[in-house]
């Protein structure tokens, strides 16, 4: 079995005329936790959608577990179901992902599409609800939930398939600090190191918690890659990729100065 889950070779993708990804090559190893770092519009979400075979590259090749991902291959039900079961994507906006009338239906959506048996579905859905600690919300309509609860439902709706690869788009965006840390704790606890997790984020504070390896994206290209600890030390790189900003502040002496600023550690 190949060590790389995903292998991208010279992948480009454009929306109409706007280039979203430009000649990207990278490989993601099995069991690794990988972060895709980049500012808004750097191509992170596009890359995730390509990895989930929702979009297909205009040029270049993507392969999953040694098999190339081409649009025509998804006409084959066996292949499509196998891929969808093994790879799950959690969208940034939970409203996009929660389209079912109740939380239970939402979590049951994917297993139903994959034609699991009824008893298995009920059992697995309940497990996923327990994992995300949302069993009490089972019969509620998703639109009435809080932001944090919606995110948990969105996660449960993907984790119910127990995928090998979990793709996360800004998992903590627009969440309050407490919900953020709960989601991160859940993700750290999930999979005990056997699963591949790819997280797109611009929150550098998360990186060391959720990733063993990072790719920095800038205008659709890979600007750098490496271990989080090295990358986070490279201030020029981070500033160029719009991931950090100059922090301007006034000291007691009255002197105003500015220096590059990150939020590398979170204190609870």
């Amino acid at each position: 079995m190949p060590a790389a889950v995903f292998e991208l070779a010279n992948v480009s993708y454009r929306y109409n005329s706007v280039v979203a990804l430009d000649d990207v090559s990278l490989s993601i190893e099995r069991g690794k936790r990988v972060a895709l770092l980049g500012a808004n519009g750097s191509g992170k979400s596009t890359l995730l959608r390509l990895l989930d075979a929702l979009y297909f590259p205009d040029s270049g090749m993507i392969s999953f577990a040694g098999q190339s991902l081409q649009e025509s291959r998804f006409d084959d039900v066996e292949f499509a179901f196998d891929f969808r079961r093994r790879v799950g994507l959690v969208f940034q906006n939970p409203d996009v992902q929660l389209f079912s009338p109740t939380v239970f239906d939402e979590v049951a959506f994917a297993p139903l599409q994959l034609r699991w048996t009824r008893d298995e579905i009920v059992c697995r859905v309940n497990q996923a609800l327990d994992l995300m600690e949302i069993r009490h919300l089972k019969d509620r309509p998703p639109h009435q939930l809080s932001g944090g609860e919606k995110k948990r439902v969105a996660l449960a709706s993907v984790l119910v398939l127990d995928p090998e690869v979990l793709l996360l788009d800004e998992p903590t965006a627009a969440l309050d600090p407490k919900s953020q840390s709960q989601i991160i704790d859940l993700l750290i606890g999930w999979g005990d190191g056997r699963k591949t997790v790819v997280t797109a984020t611009h929150d550098l504070g998360l990186v060391e918690d959720i990733a063993d390896y990072c790719f920095v994206l800038q205008s659709g290209k890979i600007a750098a890659h490496g271990e989080p600890s090295e990358l986070l030390r490279d201030q020029t790189l981070l500033e160029r990729a719009n991931l950090i900003h100059a922090h301007r502040h006034r000291h007691e002496s009255g002197k105003v100065h500015s220096h590059p600023h990150t939020h590398p550690h979170r204190h609870e």
Binding site: L54, F81, N93, A108, F109, Q113, S157
Partner: peptide, 22 residues
Amino acid sequence: QLSGDVHLAMKSRGFRGEVHVL
């Protein structure tokens, strides 16, 4: 835009044009 994204989210979870409900 929402409907486009929703469709992708459905597809991502195995939606292939038929709706199955419990």
